[in-house]
Design a protein around this nucleic acid. Structure first.
Lengths: 189, 189
DNA sequence: TTCCGAAAAGCTAACCGTTAGTGCTATGTT
DNA sequence: AACATAGCACTAACGGTTAGCTTTTCGGAA
């Protein structure tokens, strides 16, 4: 059954809000644009805006679920008997490249300049680390302690976060993952 | 010259605000107590409260600078030629014990129950990691890359954060630091 | 001692993100 | 055709935070 008119309209409203918000934020700065302004420009009521997005920050990180699912799939969908760490490294490489692409630069500059957005992203990363830890703990090939799984998941997210800020992001991913590889091997029986 | 009356009064006001806030928060819940209420109970104006504390959350994490300085001193004040990782592990052990002591339990329960406080603490941890990374990078005995220093600092903070939530915090610190030790050795030439 | 400049504290009034309450309108279903 | 419901709008408010301005209090110089 194809999506009905109702769902299409809802999706369109959501998209229009997100597009309008991002445009205004990039034009005039995140902090300088109020929620009431975004709603007016998108021609919706403030309450409608908040029925689509849980907070002002969520307007910026619209597709953060992609991020989370890609990390988990890097673990669950990897080839049989492929070791964990290289699979994770490959995915983190891809994510970092995606974030450091020239087209994404203005958005990340905006995020860096707003403490509220930075805090929100930090919080998001922790959620992602928890999901990743669950995926790792669920793999029967690995069978490490809960603490080891959560630790490696945090380390992988740290790699993403640190590499994004490094002068040479690609090299930073490799450098950090050499450390993560050693940490992971230190947990095997 | 000993501190004058002015500074003593200022410190007393600050302390009274912090004590009142913590008492009210523990009695009736962080979210259930408003800033105006804290100010009234401490007998100060709201603006005075905000001249002493940057935010409502900062009322709870009053002495977070202690935390930051203890971590940095564990690096800078360690015995000559003492390796880095054991010194860090010792300090993280102490910090975790301090936070998981019975007397601190109600405070951490309150923090766990409030998303705003959790986010604030996450943000604090990142700041602490940056300070720690600076201290590590400044040690001439170590001479690792900037990325390696920042990575190890993050890992140490992760250890603190993860161990605090583990069933056996002491054992978790040891387990995670075995991983950190391996990661650190993977960076030596 | 007296007086001045500055720091601390106060008051008012607002801004901004967010939510509850209520009702209207369009859509999918019977 | 009629009903149930999801989406949206509007108003009004709440709570954290800040700007602007006045008053009090202290430290030191005259």
């Amino acid at each position: 059954m194809p999506p009905g008119r109702r769902e299409r309209k809802k999706a369109a409203t959501r998209q229009k809000i997100a597009d309008t918000a991002l445009r205004l934020f990039l034009e005039r700065g995140y902090d300088a644009v109020g929620i009431r302004e975004v709603a007016a420009e998108a021609d919706v009521a403030v309450t409608t805006l908040f029925s689509h997005f849980a907070s002002k920050e969520a307007l910026v990180f619209e597709q953060d679920q992609d991020f989370e699912q890609r990390l988990m799939r890097a673990v669950t969908d990897r080839a049989p008997h492929e070791p964990l760490i290289p699979a994770l490294r490959r995915e983190v490489h891809a994510l970092v490249r995606h974030c450091t692409a020239d087209s994404a630069a203005p958005i990340w500059r905006m995020i860096d300049e707003s403490p509220a957005l930075r805090e929100y992203e930090e919080s998001m990363r922790l959620r992602h680390a928890e999901s990743l830890a669950t995926a790792i703990a669920a793999d029967p090939d690995l069978s490490r302690s809960t603490t080891a799984c959560r630790t490696i998941a945090r380390f992988a997210i740290d790699a993403y976060s640190l590499a994004r800020e490094a002068a040479d992001p690609d090299a930073a991913v490799d450098e950090i993952f050499r450390m993560i590889e050693a940490a992971w091997e230190a947990t095997s029986p």
